[in-house]
Design a protein around this nucleic acid. Structure first.
Length: 1025
RNA sequence: GCUCGGAUGGUGGAAUUGGUAGACACGUUGGACUUAAAAUCCAAUGGCCAUAUGCGGCCGUGCGGGUUCAAGUCCCGCUCCGAGUACCA
């Protein structure tokens, strides 16, 4: 065996790894003696879609795999698992369309994913695989749900506690003194009240405190689809799919009280090694603002308007109030005169999406309600306006407008000629508001006069609280998360209903398995798909699921029909991988949890910034509170990979169509026999100039194209003439005309690296072009593969990789052609991991060539050969430079530069004709995380019987890199003119002397005397003057 | 609008604390080997100018300023592109 036969090598080692369980992570009890510290590397959970993997998906997996393998070489006990987020909407939609059970399609998809993943040679410990749709897994998702139900959140101690403790407090002192997270509308009650409540009433009240609770939530309901839609599934008020009407509707749904954890979710970000941009996204999402809530009385009404402000110090600057048009008070307080205008404005606002309202800052709009509020301090009347720059969903949906201190209020006031009182001492507000939060002193503000802003805020809150029309308040934008989905393919809630009140199924009877249904659609009456299940009732005697017909509301009760959302299963899966043996008994055993702690390195896309990454932090904190785990954060360090973009291929098309001039058609008989249009598909190099109508203007010198176009015109004219001279004649004259050129997709798999397209393949791919004429790059018309000597070229454009753009590249194809090691290297070589970059298959030959060169280093002719000789100094230097560089790059996740470093290393060793074991053996270890198959093969040939995976990482030794000379760039006025080799031992003065003596220096100076000579030893010499 | 990224040859991208801009690779061109192709190897390759050869010169990291002996890198002001996103009161 001589050449580099990657197919055999890769298959051989993939089999070996699977059989030997090379990547099995050791549990704490197994690893104790060897003292290998644990290290946990995790990829974000893949959803196994029917489309399979494209080359963009494995990018992060390759990076994390390199890191995992690197850590094994460094002596760590690495946990590097993989699994599937296998509940989800696409499988359900496919089931609705085809009637196939989603469990089956999901299994099929997973099988395909696994095959694709296996081909790339990942070092996953597959024995720990999890699938969220497996009952053995979702048993514990249900279990966590129950734990959340049984807890409330103590805001004082910032901790979740059992609800039983809360009812004990209520028993003693009611809810007046408790500082806990609860629904906004919770009323106060005393111990006596509590005791007087019925059991059902008590349950109702406790629901307002539980960390997961039932509540009326406003949703986008689409009756035709029988489901709730996300905001981005609605376009112009109708559903994106099908265009059905959508209505706002209140529905009773499960919610998660994530808002209770707002403060901890915010402060916990500080110690995480995540990118600033993701942390910032979470901070914005949580949206903490500190200020005060202030109540304004409405004149002539009993009502008050409550506002939240971060700037209570500016309260004397209030000259109007603005309510969101949707604010509930608007209808009540609007005067008769203003009614028409207000209603018109509300109707207008309703048409605008929130997106519109926020994107448009230039249009200022609003209407006066005619009503006035009363300033709490001055008692002056304050006009109440409505304006769509205030959103109902944030805060109280009302603003106390301070035009001198807020630019939006300022613009609004200017636009409507509302006074702008200035409450800042010596600050000019004639042009714009003063919105800084420091650097000013308050004026015209009674007791706040002469106070700087920060002190004024404190004083204002003090007065507001003292006079009883407000209090200091911290506001969070973070809302509780709706947890119910009207879907089939998700975790069933372990919940049944007694008198309409939810009861949890006891833990020991879990899992509650997803029932069978005959169809996956909502029921005709609008219930979720589980409403179709015939066996979906809970028997509290036998503790089993029984036939619905047996429901008697005494011992047999209906079960919950909603299922859990996609993020339920993915919010805790990182802990499940830690467990191996006792998965039936616990979600993960204490021992394992204590040992693995949390994920040391998490790799995935940044699109999960405010979804998955926030929810899993929430669940982690909750599980910590309850003592189930002992970490506060799930993912200590995170790397976000960028998207791999596709290079879509396009062809240009122009058509000739025939038509009859109807003006001359006297008898108006039906027109038949009009020839089919003729389609031309034009090679990209000619596309711009190709134009059937105006070939006379043809500017580039291409005779055959000119001829071709003339022929086309001639042919079209002949068709017309022929028809006109015969039967069409009396109905009118047949004419031809060309339509505008347009571009359309070609499948990238039909195009080679030189942008040449396979025309026959294209005809099969787009049958509508079966009879089209193809104009080749030489201007000639394509006739057949054999007879045409020209090429057909496509144009390229970088776009997102997607099926609909025909630019998807499958990793299997790359593995077939170049091998998994080449794929791995190339994905890394493409550019920085976190950047979006286009996939260009042409570059693959570069890394493939590198692998062949690497292989050759260990061979002499056809035979494997390494010498036992002492390597040269140069060879050692090359090796140690590479060790240093690659080591640093891996730690910095700069994998593209480490691939370059390997290329440089191999090129140089080849130059040096180095084939010494003492250099080549460490090099093999060094490369093995990147290209594991080829390195295993060579490692074996080097005489090792064990996998290279656990070979100790080569140690960098500085002594091999020590230099005694430096090639100094000698620059004049900052421009390098020549270089000079000088000893590194020289002092500054000696360097200067040597440089000045060089004749090239004299030539550059041309007799001038330098003003200054800058010498930086070991770096550069710059001569000024 | 705001926040965070980014902009370097024909292409993907390198470049330490400011210190030889364009590493490495693709592509292109030329050459060697071959009946030929593939593969492999060698050479050239930022632009412009100059040049028999040789020695060279000017410009150049989105744009305009600035700091510095020296700026892709630091500062100020813009433009464009990408991602996220709340009129956060």
């Amino acid at each position: 065996m001589s050449g580099y036969h990657f197919r055999e090598i890769e298959a051989k080692w993939q089999k070996y790894w699977a059989e030997q369980k090379t990547f099995k992570a050791k549990q704490p009890e197994e690893s104790g003696e060897e003292n290998n510290p644990p290290f946990y590397v995790l990829d974000m959970f893949p959803y196994p879609s029917g489309a399979g993997l494209h080359v963009g998906h494995p990018l992060g997996y390759i990076a994390s795999d390199i890191y995992a393998r690197y850590k094994r070489h460094k002596g760590f006990n690495v946990l590097h698992p993989q699994g599937y987020d296998s509940f989800g909407l696409p499988a359900e939609q496919y089931a609705i369309q085809t009637g196939q059970h989603p469990a089956k399609t999901t299994r099929d998809n997973i099988k395909r994913y696994r095959e694709q993943l296996d081909r790339i040679g990942f070092s996953f410990d597959w024995d720990r695989e999890v699938r969220t749709s497996n009952p053995e897994y979702y048993k514990w998702t249900q279990w966590i749900f129950i734990q959340l139900f049984e807890c409330y959140y103590d805001l004082d101690e910032q901790q979740a506690k059992p609800v039983s403790e809360l009812s004990a407090i209520f028993e003693k002192e009611g809810n007046i003194n408790v500082i806990v997270a609860c629904d906004e509308d919770t009323e106060t009650f005393s111990a006596e009240d509590w005791k007087a409540f019925s059991d059902d009433q008590k349950e109702q009240i406790l629901l307002k405190y539980r960390l997961t609770y039932l509540a009326e939530t406003e949703v986008n309901w689409c009756p035709a689809l029988g489901t709730v839609l996300a905001n981005d599934e609605i376009v112009n008020g109708v559903s994106e799919r099908g265009g059905h009407p959508v209505v706002r509707k209140k529905m009773k749904q499960w919610s998660m009280r994530i808002s209770a954890y707002a403060e901890r979710l915010l402060s916990g970000l500080e110690d995480l090694e995540w990118t600033e941009s993701i942390k910032e996204a979470q901070r914005n999402w949580i949206g903490k603002s500190v200020g005060a809530s202030v109540k304004f009385k409405v004149q002539n009404y009993e009502e008050v308007i409550e506002v939240f402000t971060t700037r209570p110090d500016t309260i004397f600057g209030v000259s109007f109030m603005t309510l969101a048009p949707e604010h509930e008070l608007v209808k009540k307080i609007t005067t008769e005169e203003q009614k028409e205008a207000v209603e018109a404005y509300i109707a207008e606002t309703a048409k605008r999406s929130e997106r519109d309202r926020l994107a448009d800052v230039k249009t200022i709009s609003g209407v006066f309600t005619g009503a006035y509020a009363e300033h709490p301090f001055t008692k002056a009347p304050v006009p109440i306006w409505i304006g769509d720059y205030v959103l109902a969903s944030y805060g109280t949906g009302a603003v106390m407008a301070v035009p001198c201190g807020d630019q939006r209020d300022y613009d609004f006031a200017k636009h409507f000629n509302i006074p702008i009182p200035n409450i800042f001492k010596d600050i000019d507000i004639s042009e714009q508001a003063f919105s800084e939060k420091e650097g000013a002193v308050i004026a015209n503000s009674d007791f706040l006069n002469d106070l700087p802003i920060k002190k004024a805020i404190k004083r204002a809150i003090h007065e507001i609280e003292g006079q009883g029309f407000g209090a200091s308040k911290t506001n969070y934008r973070l809302r509780d998360a709706v947890f119910s989905r009207q879907r089939y393919w998700g975790e069933p809630f372990p919940v049944y209903y007694v008198n309409g009140l939810p009861k949890m199924i006891e833990e020991k009877h879990l899992p509650l398995n997803l029932p069978e249904v005959e169809k996956y659609l909502p029921t005709e009456s609008g219930e979720p798909p589980l409403g179709r299940a015939e066996v979906w009732a809970w028997d509290t005697n036998s503790n089993t699921v029984v036939d619905n017909e047996k429901i008697d509301h005494k011992t047999i009760f209906p079960l919950e029909l909603n299922t859990m959302p996609g993020w339920a299963g993915s919010s805790w899966y990182m802990f499940r991988y830690m467990e191996t043996e006792k998965r039936d008994e616990v979600f993960a055993s204490k021992n394992a949890l204590d040992y693995w702690q949390n994920v040391n390195l998490y790799v995935g896309g940044s699109e999960h910034a405010t979804g998955h990454l926030l929810y899993s932090r929430f669940w982690t904190k909750f599980l910590k509170d309850r003592g189930f785990i002992n970490v506060d954060e799930p993912f200590q360090k995170m790397i976000n990979q960028g998207m791999i973009l596709g290079e879509s291929a396009f062809v240009s098309v122009q058509k000739i169509v025939f038509s009859v001039d109807l003006n001359e058609n006297k008898d108006k008989t039906e027109i038949k026999d009009i020839p089919e249009p003729i389609t031309f598909v034009i090679s990209n190099n000619l596309a711009e100039n190709f134009n059937i109508d105006k070939f006379e203007d043809f500017s580039i010198n291409n005779e055959s194209l000119e001829n071709t176009i003339q022929e086309i015109r001639l042919k079209a004219q002949q068709i017309c003439d022929k028809q006109n001279s015969t039967h069409i004649n009396k109905r009118g004259k047949l004419k031809y005309a060309s339509l505008p050129k347009y571009k359309t997709y070609a499948d990238v798999n039909l195009v080679n690296t030189s942008n040449e397209m396979d025309i026959e393949g294209f005809k099969k791919f787009r049958p509508e072009f079966k009879n089209a004429e193809f104009i080749l790059d030489n201007g000639k018309v394509y006739s057949s593969k054999e007879q045409s000597d020209g090429k057909f070229l496509v144009s390229r454009e970088v776009e997102k990789m997607s099926k609909s753009k025909y630019n998807v590249v499958n990793p299997d194809d790359v593995c077939d052609e170049y091998g998994a090691d080449a794929l791995r290297l190339f994905e890394m070589f493409l550019g920085p991991i976190d950047q979006a970059k286009p996939w260009n298959t042409a570059g693959l030959s570069g890394v493939y060539g590198f692998l062949k060169k690497f292989w050759k280093l260990y061979h002499q002719g056809a035979d494997f050969f390494v010498s036992e000789n002492e390597p040269s100094k140069e060879a050692f230097k090359v090796l140690h430079q590479t060790i240093k560089k690659v080591n640093e790059d891996i730690e910095a996740f700069s994998f593209n530069t480490s691939v370059s470093a390997f290329m440089i290393c191999v090129n140089e060793l080849q130059q040096l004709k180095c084939n010494d074991r003492a250099v080549l053996e460490p090099l093999c270890i060094l490369l093995s995380p990147f290209a594991p198959h080829i390195c295993e093969e060579i490692w074996e040939k080097l005489g090792h019987s064990e996998s290279v995976e656990y070979a100790p990482y080569p140690v960098f030794e500085e002594k091999y890199l020590v230099e005694d000379t430096k090639t100094y760039p000698i620059s004049f006025n900052g421009k390098t003119r020549f270089t000079l080799d000088l000893s590194l031992d020289l002092s500054k003065d000696e360097i200067e002397k040597a440089v000045m003596e060089d004749e090239r220096t004299q030539k550059q100076l041309d007799g001038r005397t330098p003003k200054k000579v800058i010498v930086v030893p070991g770096k550069i010499v710059n001569i000024v003057g």
